[in-house]
């Protein structure tokens, strides 16, 4: 099968899932509102409907990017990074003295990182933000002379760049990997990673709703349960194994990589929840109806992408 027809099959499968999800969400709403006396549907069901509708939009956006191939995915993730970085930095303590450093983060570091990925310069994009941006952000800030809460302000900006730009850019960077026998099909690695990690989030939610009992981190994320975590990661790992035919991996290898990605995704979600809790907010933003901000949807992908990339690069592309 060609890469194109495999991608079509994937999107067809996801579309089918969404049709089922939409039907369930609408039926739940209908069951609540129908009857002799018209009633309001519950906030939970309304949120479910909003979430499913937003999924359609997100899948459509990813599909549009895939139409343009590797460059489409790079542009899409550059824009997502921009949206994520603004959500992250909005919640930080930056002061007037950080203005130039913030401008540099948004308008130099971010485009440069994605530009380096577009030209496939691994040697530089793998270290650009951890080395150059890391050192230059405090240098730019110190030139403005404001020392109040300096360490805290700089660290927050560096964290923002690392999570929202550097880590996220590993998703489109998958298209630059050269794997023997897999030439020209790298977009499928992006599809594999995004699908497995996002489905893991959905499955954790579903398992948690169905059989969730024991809270796993009540102080950080009261909604997450042991049952949801285990069920979600296990079923997403199986999904990864079932998708081996679109990857250069054996089924057991696909399962192992899916497990690594979803486990990282889970702990990543916890870390991002801790930051939100520290800042006293429920969501990162309000860009995606029903989900919250871009970072609320992508927190697990941020932590999964670099590990997945480097595992694949080390074992398959070395």
């Amino acid at each position: 099968m060609t890469a194109d027809s495999q991608i079509l099959w994937l999107f067809g499968g996801v579309g089918g899932l969404l049709v089922v999800a939409t039907l369930i969400a609408r039926l739940l709403r209908l069951r609540q509102t129908a009857g002799d006396a018209p009633r309001q549907s519950s906030p939970g069901v309304e949120n479910l409907n909003a979430r499913v509708d937003a999924w359609w939009a997100m899948v459509a956006l990813l599909g549009l990017a895939f139409l343009f191939g590797g460059s489409g995915v790079i542009v899409l993730f550059a824009l997502i990074s921009l949206a994520a970085l603004r959500e992250f930095l909005t919640l930080t303590h930056t002061r007037r003295g950080d203005h130039w450093a913030l401008l540099a983060a948004f308008f130099l570091a971010l485009p440069a990182q994605y530009g380096l990925i577009a030209i496939g310069w691994y040697g530089l994009y793998a270290i650009f933000i951890p080395v150059y941006a890391f050192l230059l952000v405090p240098v730019i800030a110190v030139l403005r002379g404001d020392t109040q809460r300096f360490l805290e302000r700089i660290s927050e900006t560096q964290w923002g760049l690392m999570l929202c730009v550097y880590c996220l850019s590993y998703v489109p960077a998958l298209t630059t990997l050269e794997i023997a026998g897999f030439e020209g099909r790298q977009l499928l690695l992006v599809a594999f990673l995004v699908l497995v990690v996002q489905m893991s989030d959905v499955l954790q939610y579903v398992w948690g709703k169905l059989i969730g009992r024991h809270r796993i981190a009540p102080a950080v994320s009261p909604g997450k349960t042991v049952e949801g975590m285990a069920g979600g990661i296990a079923s997403a790992t199986l999904l990864g194994a079932a998708l081996w035919w679109i990857t250069p991996f054996q089924p057991w290898e696909a399962a192992a990589l899916a497990f690594a990605a979803t486990a990282m995704g889970f702990v990543g979600g916890l870390v991002m929840s801790a930051i939100k809790r520290d800042r006293g907010v429920k969501d990162w933003g309000w860009m995606i109806e029903g989900h919250g901000g871009v970072l609320d949807r992508l927190d697990s992908l941020v932590f999964a992408a670099p590990i997945f990339f480097h595992l694949v690069r080390y074992f398959w592309s070395g």
Partner: peptide, 11 residues
């Protein structure tokens, strides 16, 4: 901020 020309796209 006062005195700056380029905006930073925070929310």
């Amino acid at each position: 901020p006062k005195g700056e020309v380029l905006p930073v796209p925070l929310l």
